[in-house]
């Protein structure tokens, strides 16, 4: 228990430290030092790009949206009050911009395939994944995340990759906390359904009976 508490304290202090450093760079940028903004771009470019890719499902469009998001962040930096973390504020810009771009192109992707997933299925998916090479495994998971709907793919990444709380995600996406929880539940189920179909074809072909 003590170990967990110390770990948690360590993590919290890391998060606070990281956001204080961000705040310093924000202030430097506002004072006219544009190179300070370069630090923030470099720090967050991969995550911002990943969120854009997961929403738009296209690297080219994602690159454009990610770039526009950073420029928008720079332009409206003076309106950033520091109430939320800089990262959350930035993520809300890219989330909104990516959805806008999707709406403009009137594209809606994502599948509606959901099956009941048991703990056993999840474990066998996990086991089967371990047999794949690192790169193959990464690709298999990425492909399945790519098949989730735009908001589900983004929310699952915020929650599991960036370890954001439901409340923080609600602030970024402007969806209610209840809605986020429902979306998380659905996207997890969808992800495992997709993984099951892509890496466990022998199980799904025989209607749940393992050979």
């Amino acid at each position: 228990m003590k170990k967990i508490v110390t770990k948690l304290q360590h993590f919290t202090s890391y998060v606070t430290m990281s956001s204080t450093i961000d705040q310093q760079y924000v202030e430097k940028t506002l004072a006219g030092d544009t190179m300070a903004f370069g630090y923030l771009v470099e720090k967050y470019q991969d995550f911002v790009f990943t969120i854009a890719v997961r929403i738009l499902k296209s690297k080219e469009e994602a690159e454009e949206v990610a770039q526009d998001s950073f420029i928008k962040a720079f332009e409206s930096l003076s309106s950033y009050r520091g109430e939320a973390k800089f990262s959350s504020w930035l993520y809300s810009i890219v989330y909104r911009k990516a959805l806008d771009s999707l709406r403009k192109n009137k594209k809606h992707r994502g599948i509606e395939l959901i099956e009941d997933i048991t703990e056993g299925t999840v474990e066998s998916i996990d086991n089967a994944l371990q047999f794949l090479q690192d790169e193959e495994r990464k690709k298999a998971i990425r492909d399945c995340i790519g098949k989730l709907s735009e908001s589900e793919a983004a929310i699952i990444t915020f929650y599991y990759f960036e370890d954001l709380s439901v409340r923080e995600i609600s602030g970024i996406t402007e969806l209610s906390e209840e809605n986020i929880k429902v979306k998380l539940f659905r996207s997890r189920k969808k992800l495992f359904t997709l993984l099951k179909h892509s890496i466990l074809p022998e199980i799904s072909n025989t209607n749940g009976r393992a050979i």
Partner: peptide
Amino acid sequence: KIDDISKKLIKEAGLQQPS
């Protein structure tokens, strides 16, 4: 357990790099 495995998988998928 499902939550833990989800987290592990999403972390494994990692981030993608822009150009």
